[in-house]
């Protein structure tokens, strides 16, 4: 088992990369080549699909919109989750366990259930088709997750740290920002990673809450796929580009992911 164990992850990773390879290779093909013949790699290599995306604002603004609301969502979710997680990890208070479970239930809420009421709610408060609307809507499932992850990390920090700081004359806000936050930096990294991830990949709510001004890239893709026939090359190029921000984020938190989970409860 020991000697040949590298084989299992290798086969698994190959399995993971195969569809991605197919997508990327398709993005360098012309639509004619995709539909006309079966080729394992692009026979006549073209950048036309990418050119279209980078010159047409309805395309590239989709990426900008997505990145804007994902960033707002990540900052917002982690910011409100931090004090709450601290309360859950340090204190016992009335209804704390019920509250924690109630928060988790929101993580279970199917987006399909909320799509229509969200549309009505955000139209009523005048936020429809803004980045803020999508960012707020995504806090529904990201805040509970962030609280859950951060609570795990904070419970791993001994309480003596808090007490020592108070003895040393730190006020609570100063202790929280100067000492506590740096201690759980890994946890914040992991929480940000998950918030980014779930907000970036979600489509149903993002699509329902936007029309033009804040339309996410995922929604642009579905619209274009249906309106201009089925331009597979273009679709593949747009899809390939959506992998890049995620890959960046993973690269930055790569050391935290494994160690981070282990330290924390998640």
């Amino acid at each position: 088992m020991k000697r040949s164990s590298w084989l299992i992850p290798t086969i698994y990773i190959l399995f993971l990369l195969l569809p991605i390879y197919w997508l990327v290779s398709m993005s360098f093909k012309s639509t004619n080549e995709i539909l006309g013949s079966f080729t394992l790699w692009p026979q006549d290599f073209t950048l036309a699909n990418y050119e279209k995306i980078f010159t047409d604002p309805t395309w590239y603004m989709g990426y900008v919109n997505s990145l804007i609301y994902v960033s707002i969502n990540t900052v917002l979710s982690v910011a409100v989750a931090l004090p709450a997680a601290y309360a859950f990890s340090r204190y016992r208070f009335m209804g704390d366990k019920h509250l924690f479970f109630w928060l988790l239930t929101n993580r279970m809420a199917p987006a399909a259930v909320f799509a229509l009421p969200f549309f009505q709610l955000y139209s009523a408060v005048g936020l429809f088709d803004t980045h803020l609307a999508v960012a707020l809507a995504h806090t529904l499932f990201n805040v509970p997750l962030a609280v859950w992850i951060l609570e795990g990390f904070m419970s791993g920090v001994p309480k003596q740290l808090d007490e020592t700081a108070y003895v040393d004359g730190y006020s609570f806000p100063r202790f929280f920002v100067r000492i506590f936050l740096p201690t759980i930096a890994a946890g914040i990294g992991v929480a940000c990673f998950f918030c980014f991830m779930f907000s970036w990949v979600e489509l149903l709510l993002g699509k329902t809450l936007t029309a033009v001004a804040a339309k996410p890239i995922a929604a642009t893709m579905t619209r274009t796929a249906s309106s201009s026939g089925y331009e597979l090359g273009l679709l593949a190029a747009a899809g390939s580009l959506t992998i890049i921000p995620g890959a960046f984020v993973i690269y930055f938190v790569r050391n935290y992911i494994a160690r981070g989970f282990a330290l924390g409860r998640v």
Binding site: L16, V201, E202, L203, M221, T222, I243
Partner: peptide
């Protein structure tokens, strides 16, 4: 490499 599929939008 293993995290890659997790970060691809669901419609993609």
């Amino acid at each position: 490499l293993m995290s890659l599929p997790l970060l691809i939008p669901w419609n993609v």
